[in-house]
Each structure stands twice: as C-alpha cells, then as structure tokens.
Amino acid sequence: MWAASLSTHQQFLNPNPFKNDQNFNFKNPIWWRKQNSVSARCCLKKTEESKNHYELLGVSVDASAQEIKNAYRKLQKKYHPDIAGEKGHESTLMLNKAYKVLVREDLRREYDKSIGRVRVGIQSNTFRSKWREPLRPQALFVDENACVGCWKCVHYAGNTFTMDETCGSARVKTQYGDDDTKIEISVESCPVNCIHWVDSKELAVLEYLIQPQPNVGYGIYGQGWERPTNVFMAAKSFNKHLEQQEESKQRQGKSKDEEETPAQAEAREHAYKELQTGGFARIWSWMKRSTGQ
C-alpha cells in the first residue's frame, strides 16, 4: 500500500516526463486540442482520490496560511499548463481544489474533520518530529516517561532518533529517517519497550503532550516541570477537549456564517459537496474503467 502511494506521488511529481524532447508539441494548441479526449482528462482521478490536500501541497497539517500559499505558488510554477504544457491540466485542477479548501479557514476546519486530523495549533518545535517522506498511516513515537536513556535506538537508527540530553530521554527527530530494517531493529532493541507505533493522526497531539510543562508552584515548593504520566490517556482526553472546543467555535462561527451572502454560502456548500467526491466521481471513474486507463 505504501508502494502504491509512493508511485502515485512520483507520478504527480513528474507530470511531463517528455518535457525536454517534446516541449514544442505540448505547447502547440492544435496538437493538444486534437489529442484531448475524455479518457486522457480523467485518467488521473486515482491520484486525486488517494492523496489528501496536505500531501498534495507538501505541507504539514499544521502549516500556516502563508506556508500553504507559498507551497501552492511553488507547485503552480512547476505544473501550471502555461509551464508544464497540457499535461499540467490535471495536476493544476488538483492543486486548485486543495488550495481552495486549505486557504479558507472554515473549509479547512471541515476538511480536517473529514480526514480525521486535528490541528493542535502549535508551531514546530524541538519536540516535533519531521516527515521527510510523504505521510504514512503509522508513525514512531517515544514515550519519554518510560525511556531510560539507553542510547540503543539512536545507535541503531541515528537518522530517526535523537537523544535529548537535558531530559535524558530519546525522541524521534525524523519519521522514517532510516530504512525499515534499521528502524525495526531499534524498536526491538528498546529495553523498556517505550518506542510505539502510533496512528499518524494522533502523533501531533502525543508529541505536544509529551513536552514537559512548567508547574505552577507556591514559593519554592511544587515548582519544576511535569508531563502527563500516561501520555496516551492524556491524548484521549485532550482530543475530546479539542472536539468540544471545535464545536463551541463552530457555534460561535454560525452567527458569522449567516452574514455571508447567499452566493458565498452556496459556493461554500458547493466546495463542501466536492469533498464528498465519492458519489460525484462515479461517472468519471466509469469512464476511466471503460477506457482502460
């Protein structure tokens, strides 16, 4: 499954493999107008369905609006039909769709919910691991409360794990920074089994919660740093709390929504409909099958 997602990724990254030798042809409107058929236009649907908007733009789920804009512009400069030729049409359609959703805060919130992601609202810091590759469904997470600081994981997979000397515990710096065998060995090697495979969607919350928080103390007593003792339980309640927040936010947002002009509301609704591509894509997926694409 990972291999499949990788290959579609590459397919997208390389929409115009013939660019160098057939450049002129792709730019020639007569040429592509003749070549164009429904099948050619709908063959990339699979890619569209298998990638989420964040992966498409190559940004993290916590990316700021500015980061999203920059990523969109950068990708457009590569894939826009003005530059990539007619092959860029499908890629640009996907980019435009993703951008439209992510750049509008309300649409993005709904989209996040639809893909089961929660934005924690914290920017990158030392406790966050980075993804060098496209997101995978599972991620590595070190329960730093349990870690004894044995250095073994860092020894076996030094590109993935790092040792935080001040906390005395290991941490993931890059997800899948080493090959799968090395990572497996390092996970096995942990004497206290504190390296966990977690759902990628939950990673952000876990990494957020594992940060030591300053304790509010009285005088010299009770000060210092503290972490939840069971980070997984804490994550559960944190998620619940976030959901409630989200709901109340939406309730507040309602009054604002009503100020939208009917046309805007309609456009928003329409964009939401588009997210539910399933039913709408039936005709196009049929075309794909019938034309053998």
Partner: peptide, 24 residues
C-alpha cells in the same frame, strides 16, 4: 460537468446514471 483549461477552453460533459447502476 464543466471543465475550463488554462487556454480558457470550456467543455461541457453530461451523462445519465441510474441509481445503483455502475455505468451511464
């Protein structure tokens, strides 16, 4: 379905699907 490409060419696609059917 309406499709506009970068050269501003507009194409209209239309098809009928009966509920439960796979093909137009």
């Amino acid at each position: 379905c309406l499709d506009i490409d970068a050269a501003n060419v507009l194409r209209v696609f239309a098809g009928v699907i009966m509920p439960g059917a796979q093909n137009p």
